[in-house]
């Protein structure tokens, strides 16, 4: 890895709005150089994408999501990789992680309604051969996502000018 990579990545992880110029200012480097390096990091798959954190609960929009705990029989030779990769392909699936503890895969699933999420779990996830058990936990409210608090309403109470 190039020397500044970690710092570039940390800044972008904190705020995807940082431009190459901003990062160059912070690192004391040239904007063109940083822009080229970001492009390389994107192309090599280290930077996988950019998204926004949105508090959908503030909008009158039907959304439901759940954390599904899956017990899975690992396949010979591939372990959990095969089934995890397969589950990850579904557009309804937001995240898939292999976890330690009482179950194997933790999957977050989103849909428009609770019903839609239930159907997806019952018809798709539960019917995968190697999946031996599913436990569905609906998310009732989100408080923080990707380091960003969704519930805090802290306002700047300071004056416009003070010495």
């Amino acid at each position: 890895m190039v020397q500044n990579d970690k710092r570039i990545l940390k800044l972008l992880e904190k705020n995807a709005h940082f431009t190459a110029e901003d990062i160059a200012a912070v690192l004391g480097d040239k904007a063109e150089k940083i822009a080229a390096r970001i492009k390389e990091l994107e192309e090599s798959g280290i930077i996988r994408g950019y998204k926004s954190v949105i508090d959908w609960e503030r909008l009158d929009e039907d959304r439901a999501s759940a954390i599904i705990e899956l017990n899975v029989t690992p396949s010979a030779g591939h372990g959990f990789e095969e089934v995890a990769a397969r589950i990850a392909k579904y557009p309804e699936v937001e995240s898939v992680s292999l976890v330690s503890g009482g179950y194997d895969l933790s999957v977050t699933v989103k849909g428009r309604t609770f019903h839609e999420v239930c159907n997806f779990v019952a018809r798709e996830l539960a019917t995968i051969d190697s999946v031996t058990q599913t436990r569905t936990q609906f998310i009732m409210r989100r408080y923080k996502e990707l380091d960003i608090e969704l519930t805090s309403d802290e306002r700047d109470e300071r004056d416009n000018v003070s010495l």
Binding site: D159, N160, V161
Partner: peptide, 11 residues
């Protein structure tokens, strides 16, 4: 609606 850079205390 002022965009201030005017204060002398931490945010």
């Amino acid at each position: 609606n002022v965009i201030s850079l005017g204060v002398g205390e931490p945010d």
